[in-house]
Amino acid sequence: MTNLQTLNEAFAELARRADAATADQPAAPEFPLPHRAVTAGRLAAMTGTAAVVAGLAVGAVLLAPDDDGSPHVGVPPGTTTTAAPTTAAPARDLPATHQELITRFRAVLGDRATFVVSEKETQQGSTYIAGTLTADGRAGGFSLAATTGDEYALGRMCPDGDLGARRCVERPLPDGSKLIIDDTPLHSGGRDYSVDFLGVDDTSISIHLSNLRDPKAPAGTPKLADRPPLPLDQLVEIVSSELW
């Protein structure tokens, strides 16, 4: 057994690493400022149109096979899309508890995949599950969240700047809602697919799917398959399903 002094020393060492990591950085941060102040969904909700905001204009999304056969998102250079004007949609009746979320997710998935839940949580306006999803013999860590009026969730956007090997696109939908489709390489040969459906009614459904057991775990976390068990286009179908 150890004692709290050892925990204290561990905290101090981690804090020292934090100081070392930021020692060479300028006092003023270099994160992208200013961020976009209003999301497309919110703007649409306020104005009743799905206007394309400057800086939020996105290219047409392609879902094309990648080298390993999985689809990827891509944005043809120089192409943009605009969404048609729309009227405000009624708020969706999203699951309010993690048990409802599990039941609804099972219905939405149908025979596409099975899943086991290892984490679940329900808070005001937000419910969340995470675990392992299996499809066609491939397994991977997943998380799924449904929110209503959650500004953290509704504020999601693709980051600015050079994303390297990561591919992220924002796709406006005709009713003013928005999809964020993201394919992020991770450590240990991992990959994280994520799709967010940000509704014009201030609701959101977000799914992450990886070939690692936990994309947030340290390097060396078990890799369960060569790629995530479902391709991105199926994740788009899942979050866009009318069964929610």
Binding site: Y128, A145, A153, G164, A219
Partner: peptide, 11 residues
């Protein structure tokens, strides 16, 4: 939340 964007492509 686990839904935070993983901004770095190669940690």
């Amino acid at each position: 939340s686990w839904h935070r964007r993983l901004a770095r492509t190669t940690p």
